[in-house]
């Protein structure tokens, strides 16, 4: 979708945090991306390469941690983890999953020098 604007926003957050911590270089930027968020990880990585240019994160690596989504089946009541919104229940096969979480999009950690 709008990976470039998200990458620009991410780099702005990184700059804010890095300036608050008075560091000189950011070596790693770690984000947590829900498996059901509307973001394509490969596109975000590519956009990050453009957005980090001429910033304190110019040489930073982007690490993407994946966050799972949980579901309860309305048919068999069993909980499961899902990776797609179109999944069927892995236990009973019903397309009756009520999904929660999995849409996170957070900056979680910076490694700085």
């Amino acid at each position: 979708m709008h990976e470039l604007s998200l990458a620009v926003r991410l780099v702005a957050l990184v700059e804010e945090e890095a300036s608050r911590a008075a560091c000189t270089t950011v070596s790693t930027v770690t984000i947590r991306l829900g498996v059901l968020s509307c973001v394509d990880p490969a596109s975000l990585k590519l956009a990050f390469l453009a957005a980090r240019k001429d910033t304190i994160a110019a040489a930073a690596e982007l690490v993407i941690e994946s966050a799972s989504a949980h579901a309860i089946c309305l048919s068999c009541q069993k909980p499961s983890d899902v990776s797609q919104r179109t999944s069927a229940c892995p236990f009973c096969g019903a397309f009756a999953l009520v999904v929660s979480g999995g849409d996170e999009l957070r900056l979680v950690r910076l490694e700085v020098v």
């Binding site: 926003r9 991410l10 000189t24 270089t25 040489a59 957070r106 950690r109 700085v112 020098v113």
Partner: peptide
Amino acid sequence: VLRHSHPPSQPHRPSRVLEVERALLAD
């Protein structure tokens, strides 16, 4: 392997980890 550099005027500092936890769409 971590690669980095810093100006001669600044002492070498070990890298450190900042725990941040900020939503990208928080604004």
